[in-house]
């Protein structure tokens, strides 16, 4: 009995992952429809909501995280080794926290918005009325959201990392009197292409996963408004889960 339940669960997971991959595959196949004016408008609106409007928040969080990390490092190893301090900051922020925290902020902001919006459109019959007009919802609603969210994830990750490093520099240079050059030297020596590549790959995959999950859950809402909060909860939890799984896998592949 237990084996059967586990088997069914595994099968459902595989089926769901296949559904997410299909959604992303369709989005990539429809990428050239971005040149259509209303599709382009949806793309830029999502980019504005997910990327531009979040800029201030992510910069503030990044600055604070940078200050917190540098303070903890200084407590741990002291102020004597500026090179090591810079190195640890880069490793923690660029390799791990940048992509992860940017993804969490996107989940809190855009996943909830997208799944609720698509869910409400489904309940109100708006997606059907879009289809009736001869407009493919996969092209008009899904594809621009997927790519705008992915681009937002990449951009926000780099904003965050830049702000965190800036926060670290500010504290060490202005308050603790560590020479700026020494600190920067430590950071630059540890900031290799591998770090940047890992950060880019993570933010790219996180963005795609988050977009696929939020669109898929939004589209699954049946004809009842009570299903919308359930879809939002599912989308949030599943996005978080996928982000942590991808984080573990990519870290293992690149750095082990």
């Amino acid at each position: 009995m237990k084996v059967r339940v586990i088997g069914e669960g595994a099968l459902a997971t595989i089926e769901y992952l296949y559904e997410l991959f299909s959604l992303l595959f369709t989005a990539f196949r429809n990428l050239h429809f971005l040149k259509i004016s209303p599709v382009c408008t949806v793309f830029f609106r999502q980019l504005y909501f997910g990327g531009v409007e979040t800029f201030g928040k992510i910069v503030v969080i990044g600055l604070l995280i940078g200050i917190v990390i540098i303070t903890q490092i200084a407590n741990l190893i002291g102020l004597g080794s500026a090179v090591l301090t810079g190195k640890i900051l880069i490793w923690v922020v660029v390799r791990e926290l940048g992509p992860l925290l940017a993804a969490i902020i996107i989940i809190a902001r855009s996943v909830t918005a997208i799944s609720a919006e698509l869910g409400a459109m489904n309940v109100e019959g708006e997606i059907e009325s879009i289809e009736i007009m001869g407009i493919d919802p996969a092209r008009y609603l899904i594809m621009p959201r997927v790519f705008a969210l992915t681009l937002s994830a990449i951009a926000l990750t780099f904003y965050f990392e830049f702000a965190a490093i800036l926060g670290g520099i500010t504290v060490t240079s202005f308050f603790w009197g560590v020479p700026f050059e020494e600190y920067t030297k430590g950071m630059l020596s540890s900031l290799s292409i591998t770090e940047l590549f890992a950060s880019l790959v993570k933010s790219l995959l996180f963005g795609l996963a988050i977009a696929a999950v939020s669109c898929s859950q939004g589209l699954k809402v049946s004809k009842s408004i009570t299903r919308i909060p359930q879809a939002i909860t599912k989308a949030t939890i599943q996005s978080l889960f996928l982000v942590f799984i991808f984080d573990g896998i990519i870290t293992f592949i690149i750095f082990v």
């Binding site: 708006e126 059907e128 009325s129 879009i130 009736i132 001869g134």
Partner: peptide, 14 residues
């Protein structure tokens, strides 16, 4: 569908 115009009772607006 492009050649069909459908006027829905609720408007069918986005």
């Amino acid at each position: 569908r492009k050649r069909m115009g459908v006027v829905l009772n609720n408007g069918g607006l986005v």
